[in-house]
Design a protein around this nucleic acid. Structure first.
Lengths: 179, 179
DNA sequence: AGCAACCATTCATCTAGATTAACAAATGAC
DNA sequence: GTCATTTGTTAATCTAGATGAATGGTTGCT
């Protein structure tokens, strides 16, 4: 048994829900610390900075788990907003489901794999943000998430990459001309 | 028992070694995927980009574990260099010590906490890189790692922050004047 | 259908931080 | 100690990408 959905559902704590495109699941500042497993659809998590600008932290499509790990680990108010980019089917887990002390051995193992995978993705993201140009980051994004561009507006990809929509548009124009 | 050193040493697979300041523990491109627990001293991990520029990914002082999680998770050649910034006492673990399948329950739990903590730190780092100015990142660094500035050359802090040493010097000048 | 909101593109301008360079201070090797 | 290397600082330019604004294309609401 290595299906995430099965493993997480072992204790039947997850609540199955449908969420409409545009609905908000978590608001920064609130105390609600839940995790969302995406059975179908697409979510995003993001911050809003002091100037009111959105910065997308991650996208989560089918089979992904999205949560504000930082707030949960340090027991702080949420820093991330989470909302639906498509009508989605979710399983919602509350904090206690992920309390390491409470987990069974298969859950612990699955959890360790999930975290390791996530850490690996973040390691790459940090390195890209520090060392690569906007164009390189865009090309890396296309390679890593080839299906997302069809489902996500340009401006959100720009937000994920850490550039403005205008800059991304210019980059795309440059790449199109080149080929 | 929640001391990392004890937990990790349960199976006696860790090798205790002393490493001199300046010595290299891991080279990007090599296959050696080990983890280093710092008993004493200070390590760093970093990449070198296509233009030959170094980018520090993390510092690890007493009690920290440093490793190239991305390469290990995806079973690739190392992407990070790891070396000593001070004479250090280390415990070196090889890959198999962290194979999730092999771990005992207390090791699994410790591992989950370690990864969650690391993920949380990386989440914050990504958000800072996307949304904060160089000066804000520097101030956040000082708050988060108040002891490191005394042990690490300025230029390495700049590298960690993703700016040039000149830019950091200017920021420091500006902050000093202000206060 | 008709209107409003949102979205992507293009262009002109601006700015944070990179680059280059010169110099002083600290560190280390012998 | 002396000399060489590395480090931090300051200042003059340069540039990737931000900002602001105008335009046309989509999407969605009623």
């Amino acid at each position: 048994m290595d299906n995430l959905e099965e493993i997480l559902s072992l204790d039947n704590n997850g609540k199955h829900v449908n969420a409409a495109k545009g609905s908000t699941l978590q608001t920064a500042g609130a105390q609600s610390n839940r995790a969302f497993y995406v059975k179908k659809g697409l979510l995003r998590s993001y911050t809003i900075d002091s100037k009111g600008k959105e910065h997308i932290f991650m996208f989560a499509s089918e089979g992904w788990l999205i949560a504000d790990i930082e707030s949960q680990e340090f027991e702080q108010a949420a820093e991330l907003f989470i909302d639906c980019l498509e009508n989605s089917e979710l399983i919602i887990f509350n904090r206690s489901c992920f309390k390491i002390a409470n987990l069974s051995v298969p859950q612990l193992k699955k959890n360790a794999h999930l975290l390791a995978r996530r850490t690996a993705v973040l390691q790459r993201r940090v390195i890209m943000l520090m060392s690569a140009s906007a164009q390189e980051r865009y090309q890396h994004f296309l390679e890593t998430f080839p299906k997302l561009p069809n489902r996500v507006p340009q401006r959100m990809i720009a937000s994920y990459l850490g550039v403005t929509p205008q800059a991304l548009s210019t980059i795309r124009g440059r790449l199109a001309k080149k080929s």
